[in-house]
Computed example of a mutant assay.
Amino acid sequence: MFDLAHYRQYRAWIFDLDGTLSNTLQAHDLAWQHALDHFAIPYTAERMQQLGGVPIPDTVEILAREAGMTVDVKAVVTRRDARFYQLLPSTLSATPLVAGVVEPHLGQRPMAVGTGCYTDMARRILAGLGLDSALEVVIGADQVANPKPAPDTFLLAAERLGVAPADCLVFEDADAGLTAARAAGMASVDVRTLWAVARPLQ
């Protein structure tokens, strides 16, 4: 499943979080359904899949704009996130990447998380996986001016690790993240080719 010999050619590894290290897609899907339905914001499974990796507030703004609506973005995000945290304890699990790649190499090479969610949420998810102390460099969308698909998230992660972008390998499960990795001048692994990914939001 994993081409470890290829991965080890790179000095540092940067991981997306949702769908890459953590099985949180079910909780995210249900939380989105809860919030969007409450505020009567139209959405489709296809559009939500296209927006994978885009920060939550930006996703709300995009969906509202496409529907010609004016919404209280903060209120939508607050309802969505509250529902997500309610669901997280009963739905969170690690992807195969954690046991197969991350844990065997802890302390052997620099690793970071570069995610489209905000840092506090990312750290809470990592804590649920028992990885919060192992992966100390966590770059959330709130730390950069331009989140994915812009390269800023991954470039800041590389900077914090002290490794040149060309020496970093990114693990991602979303098109926005893969675009960001390319823009950052980093090689990438599309984890969707390594195992079955949960269905998109219906």
Rank of each mutant, 00 (worst) to 15 (best):
residue 36 L to D: 01
residue 37 D to Q: 13
residue 37 D to R: 10
residue 38 H to A: 15
residue 41 I to M: 01
residue 41 I to C: 00
residue 41 I to P: 00
residue 41 I to A: 01
residue 42 P to S: 13
residue 44 T to L: 12
residue 44 T to G: 11
residue 45 A to S: 15
residue 46 E to Q: 14
residue 46 E to T: 09
residue 51 L to I: 07
residue 53 G to E: 10
residue 54 V to E: 03
residue 54 V to F: 08
residue 54 V to A: 06
residue 57 P to K: 10
residue 58 D to F: 04
residue 59 T to Q: 14
residue 65 R to E: 15
residue 65 R to L: 12
residue 65 R to V: 02
residue 65 R to G: 12
residue 65 R to N: 13
residue 65 R to H: 13
residue 66 E to W: 08
residue 68 G to K: 11
residue 68 G to V: 09
residue 68 G to A: 08
residue 69 M to N: 00
residue 69 M to I: 05
residue 69 M to V: 01
residue 70 T to V: 15
residue 70 T to A: 15
residue 70 T to M: 06
residue 72 D to E: 11
residue 75 A to D: 03
residue 75 A to W: 03
residue 76 V to W: 00
residue 78 T to D: 12
residue 78 T to W: 05
residue 78 T to R: 14
residue 78 T to G: 00
residue 79 R to N: 01
residue 79 R to K: 13
residue 80 R to E: 11
residue 81 D to S: 13
residue 82 A to D: 13
residue 84 F to I: 07
residue 86 Q to E: 15
residue 87 L to N: 12
residue 88 L to H: 07
residue 88 L to I: 07
residue 89 P to E: 05
residue 90 S to M: 10
residue 90 S to G: 13
residue 91 T to D: 02
residue 91 T to M: 15
residue 92 L to P: 09
residue 93 S to L: 03
residue 93 S to Y: 10
residue 93 S to K: 13
residue 94 A to W: 00
residue 96 P to W: 02
residue 96 P to V: 03
residue 98 V to I: 14
residue 99 A to I: 00
residue 100 G to Q: 03
residue 100 G to R: 00
residue 101 V to R: 00
residue 101 V to G: 01
residue 103 E to G: 00
residue 103 E to M: 02
residue 106 L to Q: 01
residue 106 L to M: 05
residue 107 G to V: 02
residue 109 R to I: 03
residue 111 M to H: 06
residue 111 M to R: 02
residue 112 A to Y: 07
residue 112 A to K: 07
residue 112 A to N: 06
residue 112 A to L: 05
residue 114 G to M: 05
residue 114 G to E: 03
residue 114 G to R: 10
residue 115 T to N: 09
residue 116 G to H: 11
residue 116 G to C: 10
residue 117 C to S: 14
residue 119 T to Y: 06
residue 121 M to I: 10
residue 121 M to K: 13
residue 122 A to C: 12
residue 122 A to G: 09
residue 126 L to W: 09
residue 127 A to S: 11
residue 128 G to W: 01
residue 131 L to V: 04
residue 132 D to F: 02
residue 133 S to A: 15
residue 133 S to H: 14
residue 134 A to E: 14
residue 134 A to W: 01
residue 136 E to W: 01
residue 137 V to E: 02
residue 139 I to R: 03
residue 140 G to E: 12
residue 140 G to T: 11
residue 141 A to W: 04
residue 141 A to L: 09
residue 141 A to Q: 05
residue 142 D to W: 07
residue 142 D to I: 08
residue 145 A to R: 13
residue 146 N to W: 08
residue 146 N to A: 14
residue 148 K to I: 08
residue 150 A to K: 06
residue 151 P to W: 04
residue 152 D to G: 05
residue 153 T to V: 15
residue 153 T to L: 08
residue 154 F to C: 05
residue 155 L to N: 02
residue 156 L to A: 03
residue 159 E to I: 00
residue 160 R to N: 06
residue 161 L to T: 06
residue 161 L to I: 07
residue 162 G to D: 05
residue 164 A to F: 02
residue 165 P to Q: 08
residue 166 A to Q: 14
residue 169 L to D: 02
residue 170 V to A: 04
residue 172 E to S: 07
residue 173 D to N: 14
residue 174 A to E: 10
residue 174 A to G: 10
residue 175 D to Y: 07
residue 176 A to W: 08
residue 177 G to T: 08
